[in-house]
Computed example of a mutant assay.
Amino acid sequence: MDAIKIQIPSLSENIRIIESFIDNAKEQYNFTDDIYGNIMIAVTESVNNAIVHGNQSDKSKNVHLSLNLEDNQVKFTIEDEGPGFDYDNLPDPTAPENLEKPGGRGIFLMKNLCDEVSFIDNGKKVILSFYLP
């Protein structure tokens, strides 16, 4: 199957476009409510990271999202136009010194909601995989 792709300028209000994209995918592929909930949180979190951290909320830069269905899994690829980041050395949000911090949970959340999370190209591209029942 060909990937379904969209791109949005790096504005936080464009998250609603991503939510509609996921709603349409749910209808098209009959995601269960559990998987749909996990996809919605993980993908919107990843896109928000791409907007805020990757593209520094620069509306002249885009975030690219694609959806691929392969065998029994759905993969979302989120890519920004920023410099990337060191995804192997992120602070642990469950460590006592980080529990009160407002940020730093996005990737932790994604890893807990997805079946697989892969970072490519210095973290400019992330692939979120969900196994379908």
Rank of each mutant, 00 (worst) to 15 (best):
K61A: 08
C114G: 03
E116P: 02
P93Q: 03
I39E: 02
D23P: 03
N98H: 11
S10G: 05
N122R: 13
M110N: 06
D80S: 09
E79R: 15
I41T: 12
H53F: 14
V43E: 02
D88T: 15
I107T: 01
N72S: 14
I78A: 02
D34H: 10
S20I: 06
I4W: 07
N55I: 11
Y29W: 13
K125H: 05
M110F: 04
P93C: 04
F85R: 07
V117T: 14
L109Q: 05
I41P: 00
F76V: 05
I22F: 00
F130Q: 02
Q28P: 04
H53E: 09
E45I: 04
D2N: 15
L113C: 09
P133I: 07
I8C: 01
S10T: 08
E116D: 15
V74Y: 02
F119P: 03
N72P: 03
R105D: 05
G37E: 11
P133A: 09
P83W: 11
S46D: 11
V47D: 01
S60H: 14
S129V: 12
D58T: 14
D88E: 15
L99E: 05
I8F: 02
F21M: 01
D121C: 08
F21E: 00
C114Q: 02
S129L: 07
S60L: 12
D34F: 12
L90E: 06
S20W: 00
E97C: 06
K101W: 04
E97R: 07
N14D: 10
H53Y: 15
C114F: 01
M40Q: 10
G54Y: 07
N112V: 06
Q28A: 15
G84E: 03
V47C: 06
G106H: 02
S118P: 05
N112P: 02
S129N: 08
N112M: 12
I8T: 02
I127K: 11
N122S: 15
A3D: 11
L109D: 06
E79F: 06
K125F: 04
I51N: 01
D33S: 13
K111T: 10
H53S: 11
N122L: 14
N112I: 05
F85G: 07
G82I: 03
D34I: 13
L113A: 05
I39F: 11
K101L: 10
I51L: 08
N14W: 06
I17P: 00
D71L: 12
S46Q: 11
N24L: 11
S66D: 10
N30Q: 14
G103W: 09
D115G: 04
M40Y: 08
L90N: 10
D2G: 14
G84S: 06
K61M: 12
E70C: 12
L65P: 01
H64I: 13
L67I: 09
N62C: 09
E81T: 10
Y36V: 00
G54I: 06
E19I: 10
D121A: 13
N38G: 08
N62G: 05
